[in-house]
Amino acid sequence: MAATDVNVTQSQSQSQMKVSDEVAIEIDSMNKWYGSFHVLRDIDLTVQRGERIVICGPSGSGKSTLIRCINALEEHQQGSIEVDGVPLSSDLKNIDKIRSEVGMCFQHFNLFPHLTIMENCTLAPIWVRKIPKREAEKTAMHFLEKVKIPEQADKYPGQLSGGQQQRVAIARSLCMKPRIMLFDEPTSALDPEMIKEVLDTMIQLAEEGMTMLCVTHEMGFARQVANRVIFMDAGQIVEQNEPEAFFNNPQNERTKLFLSQILGH
């Protein structure tokens, strides 16, 4: 029991250390439908700056859709989403503003295959932030060093391994100096050997106080990094709690079943 206690104090100290009172994302009774299919039902979620939230749940539960709504890759039909105080509406100017403040990493990386790694990283800073090319390249090099692949800068994405590509994708997002990072199953398309290098990068990011929302099935990562775990099922938030309580003492039957299935083997 002693070991668990240490873990709890650790995770508490982490969350106390970095989370501020400032609200980063405010989602209020948000609903979304695909045609007549009700994918997201009455989602209420407040994310404080510096929070690291892991969202898990069975496939089709709406977890990816939820974080894709936050940067308007998907449109919600009811309720409100505010990111950094900017309301997400159909106003294109607001959407572009939010997107440039919110970084996103995808399951399949979505790097631009016709551009080099360096060009992938400098494109948005140059065209959206209007930063001079030389400065953008300096920033890009800084972040490529941070994800530990500066030597690949002149290669094309097709020449890199999956893990390297995902780290480039993270660096590409960071080059926009985002205040929030969204991760949509960043390790699901990777070979087991490469998952660790991506998770290490994400852990490093979390330690620096980045506000993060991760859809992932990496429960070890959730335990180590998250200060809140959200379980979704059938388009609803079923349970959310601090990781220790969530994993050791789940309340909802559906959560218990899910955890027993993914942790059972």
Partner: peptide, 26 residues
Amino acid sequence: PKGQYEGAESLGLDYAQSMRLIILPQ
């Protein structure tokens, strides 16, 4: 792939930029 459009959008590129820099070249 749809991901190319989403990748461009998620970086804050507007329609003209994402067409010109990402979509059309490919």
